[in-house]
Protein backbone atom coordinates (compact mmCIF):
# COMPACT_ATOMS: atom_id res chain seq x y z
CA UNK A 1 0.00 0.00 0.00
CA UNK A 2 1.68 3.18 -1.11
CA UNK A 3 1.75 5.91 1.46
CA UNK A 4 0.87 9.44 0.50
CA UNK A 5 3.73 11.83 0.85
CA UNK A 6 3.07 14.66 3.26
CA UNK A 7 3.28 17.28 0.54
CA UNK A 8 1.33 15.48 -2.15
CA UNK A 9 -2.08 14.53 -0.92
CA UNK A 10 -2.64 17.96 0.52
CA UNK A 11 -1.37 19.79 -2.52
CA UNK A 12 -4.00 22.01 -4.08
CA UNK A 13 -5.06 20.79 -7.50
CA UNK A 14 -4.79 24.19 -9.11
CA UNK A 15 -1.05 23.76 -9.51
CA UNK A 16 0.42 24.23 -12.97
CA UNK A 17 0.74 20.95 -14.83
CA UNK A 18 -2.61 19.72 -13.69
CA UNK A 19 -4.15 17.85 -16.57
CA UNK A 20 -6.74 15.57 -14.99
CA UNK A 21 -6.42 13.16 -17.89
CA UNK A 22 -6.99 10.32 -15.47
CA UNK A 23 -10.39 11.72 -14.61
CA UNK A 24 -11.29 12.18 -18.26
CA UNK A 25 -10.43 8.58 -19.08
CA UNK A 26 -12.24 7.36 -15.97
CA UNK A 27 -15.30 9.23 -17.18
CA UNK A 28 -14.98 7.64 -20.60
CA UNK A 29 -14.77 4.19 -19.03
CA UNK A 30 -17.84 4.97 -16.97
CA UNK A 31 -19.75 5.94 -20.07
CA UNK A 32 -18.79 2.75 -21.86
CA UNK A 33 -19.77 0.66 -18.84
CA UNK A 34 -23.08 2.47 -18.57
CA UNK A 35 -23.81 1.76 -22.21
CA UNK A 36 -23.15 -1.94 -21.64
CA UNK A 37 -25.18 -2.09 -18.44
CA UNK A 38 -28.14 0.03 -19.42
CA UNK A 39 -30.12 -2.43 -21.59
CA UNK A 40 -29.91 -5.22 -19.03
CA UNK A 41 -30.78 -2.92 -16.16
CA UNK A 42 -33.71 -1.39 -17.98
CA UNK A 43 -34.99 -4.90 -18.64
CA UNK A 44 -34.50 -5.84 -15.00
CA UNK A 45 -36.26 -2.74 -13.77
CA UNK A 46 -39.12 -3.39 -16.15
CA UNK A 47 -39.51 -7.03 -15.21
CA UNK A 48 -38.86 -6.89 -11.47
CA UNK A 49 -38.87 -3.43 -9.91
CA UNK A 50 -41.80 -2.07 -11.85
CA UNK A 51 -43.95 -5.15 -11.06
CA UNK A 52 -43.01 -4.81 -7.39
CA UNK A 53 -44.19 -1.22 -7.22
CA UNK A 54 -47.29 -2.04 -9.21
CA UNK A 55 -47.93 -5.03 -6.95
CA UNK A 56 -47.80 -2.85 -3.86
CA UNK A 57 -50.21 -0.43 -5.50
CA UNK A 58 -52.60 -3.24 -6.44
CA UNK A 59 -52.49 -4.51 -2.89
CA UNK A 60 -54.01 -1.22 -1.77
CA UNK A 61 -56.91 -1.63 -4.19
CA UNK A 62 -60.07 -3.56 -4.13
CA UNK A 63 -59.65 -5.32 -7.44
CA UNK A 64 -61.87 -8.22 -8.20
CA UNK A 65 -62.16 -9.48 -11.76
CA UNK A 66 -65.37 -11.24 -10.85
CA UNK A 67 -66.90 -8.06 -9.45
CA UNK A 68 -65.26 -5.17 -11.35
CA UNK A 69 -67.99 -2.76 -10.26
CA UNK A 70 -66.64 -2.96 -6.69
CA UNK A 71 -63.10 -1.90 -7.66
CA UNK A 72 -61.57 1.07 -5.93
CA UNK A 73 -59.03 2.27 -3.41
CA UNK A 74 -58.93 0.12 -0.33
CA UNK A 75 -55.95 1.49 1.62
CA UNK A 76 -54.77 -1.09 4.10
CA UNK A 77 -58.07 -2.95 4.05
CA UNK A 78 -56.56 -5.94 2.28
CA UNK A 79 -53.83 -6.18 4.89
CA UNK A 80 -56.31 -5.83 7.72
CA UNK A 81 -58.36 -8.57 6.17
CA UNK A 82 -55.23 -10.66 5.76
CA UNK A 83 -54.28 -10.47 9.43
CA UNK A 84 -57.74 -11.70 10.37
CA UNK A 85 -57.79 -14.43 7.74
CA UNK A 86 -57.36 -17.91 9.25
CA UNK A 87 -56.66 -19.30 5.77
CA UNK A 88 -53.69 -16.95 5.52
CA UNK A 89 -52.26 -18.03 8.87
CA UNK A 90 -52.81 -21.64 8.00
CA UNK A 91 -51.02 -21.21 4.64
CA UNK A 92 -48.16 -19.47 6.41
CA UNK A 93 -47.79 -22.39 8.82
CA UNK A 94 -47.95 -24.82 5.91
CA UNK A 95 -45.26 -22.82 4.11
CA UNK A 96 -43.00 -23.03 7.14
CA UNK A 97 -43.67 -26.75 7.64
CA UNK A 98 -43.05 -27.40 3.94
CA UNK A 99 -39.88 -25.30 3.85
CA UNK A 100 -38.30 -26.57 7.06
CA UNK A 101 -39.06 -30.22 6.41
CA UNK A 102 -37.93 -30.24 2.79
CA UNK A 103 -34.75 -28.28 3.49
CA UNK A 104 -33.78 -30.43 6.47
CA UNK A 105 -34.46 -33.63 4.56
CA UNK A 106 -32.49 -32.45 1.54
CA UNK A 107 -29.47 -31.44 3.58
CA UNK A 108 -29.43 -34.54 5.79
CA UNK A 109 -29.99 -37.07 3.00
CA UNK A 110 -27.76 -35.15 0.60
CA UNK A 111 -24.92 -34.99 3.12
CA UNK A 112 -25.27 -38.66 4.04
CA UNK A 113 -25.13 -39.69 0.39
CA UNK A 114 -22.21 -37.41 -0.32
CA UNK A 115 -20.25 -38.89 2.58
CA UNK A 116 -21.05 -42.42 1.45
CA UNK A 117 -20.16 -41.82 -2.16
CA UNK A 118 -16.95 -39.95 -1.30
CA UNK A 119 -15.47 -43.32 -0.44
CA UNK A 120 -16.43 -44.81 -3.77
CA UNK A 121 -13.57 -44.86 -6.17
CA UNK A 122 -15.44 -45.80 -9.31
CA UNK A 123 -18.83 -44.94 -10.65
CA UNK A 124 -19.00 -41.35 -9.40
CA UNK A 125 -19.74 -40.09 -12.89
CA UNK A 126 -22.70 -42.44 -13.12
CA UNK A 127 -24.03 -41.00 -9.89
CA UNK A 128 -23.54 -37.48 -11.03
CA UNK A 129 -25.61 -38.20 -14.11
CA UNK A 130 -28.32 -39.92 -12.07
CA UNK A 131 -28.34 -37.00 -9.66
CA UNK A 132 -28.69 -34.52 -12.49
CA UNK A 133 -31.83 -36.13 -13.87
CA UNK A 134 -34.36 -34.95 -11.25
CA UNK A 135 -32.70 -31.56 -10.94
CA UNK A 136 -33.03 -30.61 -14.60
CA UNK A 137 -36.62 -31.76 -14.91
CA UNK A 138 -39.53 -29.40 -14.81
CA UNK A 139 -41.23 -29.57 -11.40
CA UNK A 140 -44.51 -29.69 -13.28
CA UNK A 141 -43.48 -32.87 -15.09
CA UNK A 142 -42.09 -34.33 -11.87
CA UNK A 143 -45.40 -33.58 -10.17
CA UNK A 144 -47.30 -35.20 -13.01
CA UNK A 145 -45.14 -38.32 -12.97
CA UNK A 146 -45.50 -38.78 -9.21
CA UNK A 147 -49.16 -38.03 -9.15
CA UNK A 148 -49.97 -40.36 -12.03
CA UNK A 149 -47.59 -43.25 -11.91
CA UNK A 150 -46.37 -43.36 -8.32
CA UNK A 151 -49.23 -42.29 -6.08
CA UNK A 152 -52.44 -43.18 -7.92
CA UNK A 153 -54.36 -45.70 -5.82
CA UNK A 154 -54.20 -49.29 -7.07
CA UNK A 155 -51.72 -49.07 -9.91
CA UNK A 156 -49.36 -46.39 -8.61
CA UNK A 157 -46.10 -48.02 -7.59
CA UNK A 158 -45.99 -46.50 -4.12
CA UNK A 159 -49.52 -47.62 -3.46
CA UNK A 160 -48.64 -51.08 -4.72
CA UNK A 161 -45.69 -51.20 -2.31
CA UNK A 162 -47.93 -50.09 0.56
CA UNK A 163 -50.44 -52.81 -0.25
CA UNK A 164 -47.69 -55.40 -0.52
CA UNK A 165 -46.29 -54.27 2.82
CA UNK A 166 -49.70 -54.88 4.36
CA UNK A 167 -50.51 -51.23 4.93
CA UNK A 168 -53.35 -51.33 2.48
CA UNK A 169 -54.17 -48.90 -0.26
CA UNK A 170 -53.87 -45.30 0.87
CA UNK A 171 -55.51 -42.21 -0.43
CA UNK A 172 -52.13 -40.52 -0.90
CA UNK A 173 -53.40 -37.27 -2.29
CA UNK A 174 -56.93 -37.32 -0.92
CA UNK A 175 -56.11 -37.42 2.76
CA UNK A 176 -54.99 -34.00 4.13
CA UNK A 177 -51.99 -35.27 6.11
CA UNK A 178 -50.94 -37.79 3.48
CA UNK A 179 -51.20 -35.13 0.78
CA UNK A 180 -48.87 -32.81 2.67
CA UNK A 181 -46.41 -35.64 3.25
CA UNK A 182 -46.62 -36.54 -0.43
CA UNK A 183 -45.79 -33.07 -1.70
CA UNK A 184 -42.92 -32.83 0.80
CA UNK A 185 -41.56 -36.17 -0.41
CA UNK A 186 -41.86 -35.14 -4.05
CA UNK A 187 -39.99 -31.87 -3.47
CA UNK A 188 -37.35 -33.70 -1.47
CA UNK A 189 -37.01 -36.31 -4.20
CA UNK A 190 -36.45 -33.69 -6.85
CA UNK A 191 -33.99 -31.48 -5.00
CA UNK A 192 -31.95 -33.74 -2.71
CA UNK A 193 -29.63 -34.59 -5.60
CA UNK A 194 -28.84 -30.89 -5.82
CA UNK A 195 -27.73 -30.74 -2.17
CA UNK A 196 -25.88 -33.98 -2.77
CA UNK A 197 -23.98 -32.61 -5.76
CA UNK A 198 -22.98 -29.36 -4.07
CA UNK A 199 -21.88 -31.11 -0.88
CA UNK A 200 -20.02 -33.82 -2.79
CA UNK A 201 -18.13 -31.14 -4.72
CA UNK A 202 -17.27 -29.34 -1.47
CA UNK A 203 -16.17 -32.58 0.17
CA UNK A 204 -13.97 -33.42 -2.79
CA UNK A 205 -12.34 -30.01 -2.49
CA UNK A 206 -11.19 -30.66 1.10
CA UNK A 207 -7.48 -31.48 1.07
CA UNK A 208 -6.47 -35.02 2.02
CA UNK A 209 -3.60 -33.74 4.13
CA UNK A 210 -6.03 -32.43 6.75
CA UNK A 211 -7.42 -35.91 7.27
CA UNK A 212 -3.98 -37.45 7.30
CA UNK A 213 -2.87 -34.91 9.89
CA UNK A 214 -5.99 -35.63 11.96
CA UNK A 215 -5.31 -39.35 11.83
CA UNK A 216 -1.77 -38.77 12.98
CA UNK A 217 -3.30 -36.72 15.79
CA UNK A 218 -5.28 -39.86 16.66
CA UNK A 219 -8.74 -38.61 15.75
CA UNK A 220 -11.27 -41.37 15.11
CA UNK A 221 -13.68 -41.47 12.18
CA UNK A 222 -16.52 -39.88 14.15
CA UNK A 223 -14.26 -37.21 15.60
CA UNK A 224 -12.91 -36.46 12.15
CA UNK A 225 -16.46 -35.98 10.92
CA UNK A 226 -17.55 -33.73 13.80
CA UNK A 227 -14.34 -31.76 14.27
CA UNK A 228 -13.08 -31.46 10.71
CA UNK A 229 -15.60 -32.33 8.00
CA UNK A 230 -18.60 -30.48 9.42
CA UNK A 231 -16.83 -27.21 10.25
CA UNK A 232 -15.09 -27.14 6.88
CA UNK A 233 -18.32 -27.98 5.11
CA UNK A 234 -20.35 -25.45 7.05
CA UNK A 235 -20.18 -22.67 4.44
CA UNK A 236 -21.41 -25.07 1.75
CA UNK A 237 -24.17 -26.37 4.01
CA UNK A 238 -25.32 -22.87 4.91
CA UNK A 239 -25.30 -21.94 1.24
CA UNK A 240 -27.41 -24.98 0.37
CA UNK A 241 -29.83 -24.12 3.17
CA UNK A 242 -30.21 -20.54 1.97
CA UNK A 243 -30.73 -21.56 -1.63
CA UNK A 244 -33.14 -24.35 -0.92
CA UNK A 245 -35.15 -22.23 1.53
CA UNK A 246 -35.72 -19.55 -1.07
CA UNK A 247 -36.90 -22.12 -3.59
CA UNK A 248 -39.12 -24.01 -1.13
CA UNK A 249 -40.87 -20.81 -0.06
CA UNK A 250 -41.91 -20.15 -3.64
CA UNK A 251 -42.47 -23.77 -4.67
CA UNK A 252 -45.41 -23.91 -7.00
CA UNK A 253 -45.48 -26.20 -10.00
CA UNK A 254 -45.22 -29.60 -8.33
CA UNK A 255 -47.82 -28.84 -5.69
CA UNK A 256 -50.10 -27.24 -8.24
CA UNK A 257 -49.95 -30.29 -10.46
CA UNK A 258 -50.20 -32.88 -7.70
CA UNK A 259 -52.83 -31.43 -5.37
CA UNK A 260 -53.50 -27.88 -6.56
CA UNK A 261 -53.34 -26.95 -2.90
CA UNK A 262 -55.93 -29.50 -1.92
CA UNK A 263 -57.62 -31.49 -0.70
CA UNK A 264 -59.41 -28.35 0.44
CA UNK A 265 -56.52 -26.21 1.58
CA UNK A 266 -54.42 -29.05 3.03
CA UNK A 267 -51.35 -28.31 0.88
CA UNK A 268 -52.04 -24.66 0.19
CA UNK A 269 -48.76 -22.99 1.11
CA UNK A 270 -48.73 -19.20 1.08
CA UNK A 271 -47.42 -19.04 -2.48
CA UNK A 272 -50.28 -21.19 -3.72
CA UNK A 273 -52.81 -19.25 -1.72
CA UNK A 274 -51.66 -16.00 -3.36
CA UNK A 275 -51.97 -17.66 -6.77
CA UNK A 276 -55.39 -19.18 -6.12
CA UNK A 277 -56.74 -16.00 -4.63
CA UNK A 278 -55.58 -14.02 -7.64
CA UNK A 279 -56.21 -16.34 -10.55
CA UNK A 280 -58.83 -18.83 -9.38
CA UNK A 281 -60.89 -16.58 -7.16
CA UNK A 282 -59.86 -13.53 -9.25
CA UNK A 283 -59.33 -11.23 -6.25
CA UNK A 284 -56.20 -9.57 -7.52
CA UNK A 285 -56.13 -6.93 -4.81
CA UNK A 286 -56.19 -9.38 -1.94
CA UNK A 287 -53.94 -11.77 -3.87
CA UNK A 288 -51.39 -8.99 -4.19
CA UNK A 289 -51.50 -8.39 -0.45
CA UNK A 290 -50.79 -12.11 0.02
CA UNK A 291 -47.87 -11.86 -2.43
CA UNK A 292 -46.49 -8.89 -0.51
CA UNK A 293 -46.83 -10.91 2.69
CA UNK A 294 -44.88 -13.72 1.04
CA UNK A 295 -42.22 -11.22 0.02
CA UNK A 296 -41.95 -9.97 3.61
CA UNK A 297 -41.68 -13.52 4.94
CA UNK A 298 -39.00 -14.28 2.34
CA UNK A 299 -37.05 -11.15 3.29
CA UNK A 300 -37.27 -11.92 7.02
CA UNK A 301 -36.14 -15.51 6.61
CA UNK A 302 -33.31 -14.63 4.25
CA UNK A 303 -32.18 -11.85 6.60
CA UNK A 304 -31.96 -14.39 9.41
CA UNK A 305 -30.11 -16.88 7.21
CA UNK A 306 -27.64 -14.31 5.94
CA UNK A 307 -27.00 -13.08 9.46
CA UNK A 308 -26.34 -16.67 10.47
CA UNK A 309 -23.88 -17.00 7.64
CA UNK A 310 -22.05 -13.83 8.55
CA UNK A 311 -21.86 -14.73 12.22
CA UNK A 312 -20.39 -18.11 11.43
CA UNK A 313 -17.95 -16.67 8.97
CA UNK A 314 -16.65 -14.18 11.54
Amino acid sequence: MPVAGPNIAGEPDALPGLTGHDRISARREKRFATALLAPAFLALIATTTFPLLFLIWISTQRMDLAMPFMDGFAGVDNYRQLLADPRFWRSLVLSLVYTVSTVVLQVVIGLALALLLMKMKRGQTLFRIIAILPVVLSPAIVGMVWRSFMLTPEFGVIDYLAISAGLGSQNWLGDPTMAMISVIVIHTWQWTPFAFMVLLASLAALPDEIYEAARIDRAGAWQRFIRITLPLLRPAIVMVIIMRTMVALTAFAAIYVVTAGGPGTATEILNLYAYRKSFTELSLGYGSALAVALLIVTLLISAVLFLMRRERAA
Binding site: F54, L55, A274, L284, S288, L295
Partner: peptide, 13 residues
Protein backbone atom coordinates in the same frame (compact mmCIF):
# COMPACT_ATOMS: atom_id res chain seq x y z
CA UNK B 1 -36.27 -11.91 -3.46
CA UNK B 2 -39.52 -11.00 -5.16
CA UNK B 3 -41.65 -14.17 -5.39
CA UNK B 4 -42.74 -15.00 -8.95
CA UNK B 5 -46.36 -14.85 -7.91
CA UNK B 6 -45.76 -11.20 -7.03
CA UNK B 7 -44.45 -10.56 -10.53
CA UNK B 8 -47.19 -12.33 -12.40
CA UNK B 9 -50.12 -10.49 -10.79
CA UNK B 10 -49.10 -7.04 -12.04
CA UNK B 11 -47.84 -8.44 -15.34
CA UNK B 12 -51.09 -10.21 -15.91
CA UNK B 13 -52.89 -6.86 -15.68
Amino acid sequence: MLPPVGIIIPYFL
